[in-house]
Amino acid sequence: MSIGNTSILRAVDIYGEYVVSPLLSVKAVTNVILHMNSGEIVGIAGESGCGKSTLVKILYGYIEPSLRVRGRVLLNIDDGTIDLLSVDEEYKRGRIWWRYISYIPQNSMNILNPYMRVGDHFTELLKKHLNLEKDEAIRVAGEYVEDLGLRKDVLKAFPHQLSGGMRQRIVVALSLLLKPRVIFADEPTTAVDVVLQKVLLQYLLDKQKEYGSTLIIVTHDMSIHAMATERIIVMYAGHVVEEAPTELFYEDPKHPYSRALINSLPRLGDKGIRQGLAGQPPSLINPPPGCRFHPRCPYSMDICRREEPPINKYENGWRVKCWLYVKR
């Protein structure tokens, strides 16, 4: 597996909108350009309704009927590069998903088929993608599960017989089964208690290191980004407003929104006064002109209200979409 700065996934000019009616659409993702290197851990941060889940679905190539998408998502696979948004669904299902890219959805504890034994979820994938015989698939699945530190009996159980934490762990294991190159985790630990959250996160990170995969963690929880990711992408109202190396980002976030996010977090052992943001994110049906953050921004200037800010680039791949950093 190649590790280093080789690009594995590139997203070019992504737009995504949910069509509500012929005249109305929710512009969930606007003008997003991204690239992911192999082996890195990227975090996508932002609050509810900022478009981060939609973005991840688009990057995964899973387009719901009501979602209209423009742009390209280029994925490097063994025999070249493909555009996930233009290849057909069958091809993605048969060759790409699970094998090259996998997706851990929100509330993943509830996605297992209740009528299928846990083991069948594993063997089905193995049979389909690796063309294994049934007995062989069962054996491989058993070894895989034992390797995780679970008992083999788990495979014989139905999902409802396992605890929520166990099921979530199974889903994570399932998505890693074929050693995918890119793993998307959409709020993987949101509905989970802190202790289990740490268990799952550590497991995910261990496996990521072992396989050298690219891991993309989407969550609103800034503490998880601090603990897990190497690079962070902050979204606000459908735009990527900042992209930065995680460690430097937490020391000095550049975008006013990122700064507000970081400053609003209370932490143990610190009783200093924290301030939140006033107001609420704009409606994505009719987003405000100019910078979408300007109605809540303490530094907003005239130009912010009129024109969309450009992206300012700094060293280490740091990018900020804000007029404050434009030298004039």
Binding site: G149, L162, S163, G165, M166, R169, V194, V195, L196, Q197, K198, V199, L201, Q202, Y203, L205, D221, M222, S223, I224, A226, M227, A228, T246, E247, Y250, I262, L265, R267, L268
Partner: peptide
Amino acid sequence: TLIESLPIPDPKQKKLWMQKKMAFTASI
């Protein structure tokens, strides 16, 4: 355990946090 597993919004604490491994208990 609760306090040890709490993620901290500060990447400098990452190493320390990652070092403390949590055991997975499948109790009912």
